[in-house]
């Protein structure tokens, strides 16, 4: 999977590293600001009220 992505990145090695870093950052941002805030209330880790 990761090797497949790497092979399909265009350009010389430096550009590929830059693109791969960008991809990783994009996935991180998606997780931190979209997926986790959505999933968190559904998970039983941090409920603090009674009743």
């Amino acid at each position: 999977m990761y090797a497949w992505i790497w092979r399909h990145l265009p350009g010389p090695i430096a550009l590929r590293i830059a693109l791969a870093t960008l991809l990783v950052l994009a996935v991180l941002a998606l997780l931190m600001f979209v997926v986790f805030p959505w999933a968190e209330p559904k998970l039983p880790f941090n409920h603090v009220t009674t009743g």
């Binding site: 999977m1 991180l28 931190m32 968190e40």
Partner: peptide, 26 residues
């Protein structure tokens, strides 16, 4: 087998990231 293994590692990383989110990012 390789793809499944990579998916498992990815899932583990996502869970680790969730802990970082819960404890620091929030």
């Amino acid at each position: 087998v390789r793809t499944v293994g990579e998916l498992f590692i990815t899932a583990g990383l996502v869970m680790l990231l969730f802990v970082i989110y819960e404890v620091y990012v929030t």
